[in-house]
C-alpha cells in the first residue's frame, strides 16, 4: 500500500486541476467496481453494486468519499521581469512557502521568493509580498511556459520516517489511498457502495455538493486528514499520531451524526483496533456538505491523524492508515442500517 500512497501523494492536483490524480485512481479501481463515471465538476463516482441478498430488500446506499485535490497556488500576474504573482488555492500558510518549490501541470518548476528578503527574520511573510520564480529572464519567456490562471502544487517527494509517512498532499491522498485499498479488500458487499473521489474540497467542499446530490446516499462517510494535538506546545486536542484512526464527533463545519459515529465506534471495538474520538476546532470536511444534501444524509468522518497539515511535509502514521482500511472494510462488509 505504501507504493500506492507514494504515487498518489506525488501526483499533481491542486483544486480545480485534479485530472492527473483522477486518471491514476481510475486506473487503480476500474477492475474492482461495477461502474465509474466523472460528473460535471470532475468528481469520480464509482459504484460497487451489492451482492444479491435473496430477499429482494433494497440495499442501503452508502457513500464513502475522499478528496483528490490539494492546496496550491494560482498565477494571477506575470511581471515584466518574468516573476509570477499568485493567489492561494485553499488554506496556504505563507511561512510554509519560503525555501520550497512548486510545480505546474506541465512540469515547469519554480521556487518561492519574497520582496525585501532581508527583513524576513523579524516579520511574518505575507502572500502579497511573495512571488514564484520559474527562472525566466522576462515576461515573454515566462509566457511560453505558463499563463495567468495556471495552478501549481508543492513539489516534494514521498519519504518514510520510521513507521511514519511524510509527503505533501497527504491531505487527502491518504484518504484516496484508503478508499482504493478498501475497494480491493472487500470480500462481500451487502450494500450499494459509492466510492466518490471529490474535487475542490480545499476551496469549499464543492465537489461533494454535486456528487452527493447525484448519488443520493442513505448514509455518507468522508475519509480525510485531521490535525493532531501531540506536538510540543500544540493546541490542546485529543488526537495523537499512531493511536488509531479518529472518529469525528465535531468540527467547525458539522456535528457528526450520532448514528454514524456509533456505527464506526462499534466496528472499531468489534475489530479490537485502536480508535480516537475527535473534536476539532478547525475544519470542515466534505461531510459538512454531504449532510445537507437534499433531505439530509446522516454523515460522519473517519479522520487520519496528520501532523503539519497544509505544509509540504504532512506526516501520518502507517498503522493508523492500515487500521482505517480495516475499520471501513468492516463497516461496509456488514449490512448498513440506520
Amino acid at each position: 500500500m505504501k507504493e500506492l500512497i507514494a504515487r498518489l501523494v506525488e501526483a499533481y492536483g491542486p483544486s480545480g486541476n485534479e485530472e492527473q490524480v483522477r486518471a491514476l485512481i481510475q486506473d487503480e479501481i476500474k477492475a474492482h467496481v461495477d461502474e465509474a463515471r466523472v460528473d460535471a465538476l470532475g468528481n469520480l463516482v464509482a459504484l460497487l453494486k451489492s451482492d444479491p441478498d435473496g430477499q429482494g430488500k433494497p440495499p442501503t446506499r452508502v457513500m464513502v468519499a475522499a478528496h483528490m485535490d490539494e492546496i496550491g497556488i494560482i498565477v494571477t500576474h506575470i511581471d515584466e521581469k518574468g516573476f509570477l504573482r499568485f493567489a492561494p488555492i485553499g488554506g496556504l500558510t505563507p511561512l510554509t512557502l519560503l525555501g520550497n518549490r512548486a510545480v505546474f501541470a506541465n512540469g515547469v518548476m519554480g521556487t518561492f521568493g519574497m520582496e525585501k528578503r532581508e527583513i524576513l527574520p523579524t516579520e511574518k511573510p505575507k502572500l502579497d509580498r511573495m512571488f514564484l520564480d520559474i527562472g525566466t529572464p522576462d515576461k515573454e519567456s515566462a509566457l511560453k511556459l505558463v499563463s495567468v490562471g495556471d495552478a501549481a502544487a508543492f513539489s516534494r517527494g514521498f519519504a518514510q520516517a520510521g513507521n511514519r509517512l511524510l509527503a505533501k498532499a497527504m491531505d487527502d491522498r491518504i484518504g484516496c489511498a484508503i478508499l482504493i485499498q478498501v475497494v480491493k479488500t472487500l470480500k462481500k458487499n451487502p450494500n450499494d457502495i459509492y466510492f466518490v473521489f471529490t474535487v475542490q474540497e480545499e476551496v469549499g467542499c464543492r465537489g461533494a455538493v454535486t456528487s452527493t446530490y447525484g448519488v443520493q446516499p442513505d448514509l455518507a462517510i468522508a475519509v480525510d486528514a485531521t490535525d493532531t494535538g501531540d506536538t510540543p506546545e500544540s493546541r490542546p486536542m485529543n488526537v495523537t499520531l499512531g493511536k488509531g484512526p479518529a472518529i469525528k464527533v465535531k468540527d467547525a463545519g458539522m456535528l457528526a451524526h450520532p448514528a454514524v459515529r456509533r456505527l464506526l465506534v462499534e466496528a472499531a471495538k468489534g475489530l479490537g483496533i485502536p480508535y480516537q474520538l475527535e473534536v476539532l476546532e478547525g475544519g470542515p470536511t466534505d461531510a459538512m456538505v454531504m449532510q445537507t444534501s437534499r433531505e439530509g444524509v446522516p454523515s460522519g468522518v473517519v479522520s487520519i491523524p496528520c501532523r503539519y497539515v497544509h505544509s509540504p511535509s504532512e506526516m501520518v502514521d502507517y498503522d493508523d492508515v492500515t487500521n482505517a482500511v480495516k475499520l471501513l472494510t468492516k463497516v461496509l462488509e456488514d449490512r448498513v442500517a440506520i
Binding site: 458539522m254 456535528l255 449532510q291 437534499r294 439530509g296
Partner: peptide, 13 residues
C-alpha cells in the same frame, strides 16, 4: 446554531 442543518433539509423535504 451550527449552520441551519435542520432548516435546509426539512425545507427540501
Amino acid at each position: 446554531e451550527t449552520g441551519y442543518l435542520g432548516a435546509i433539509t426539512s425545507a427540501f423535504r
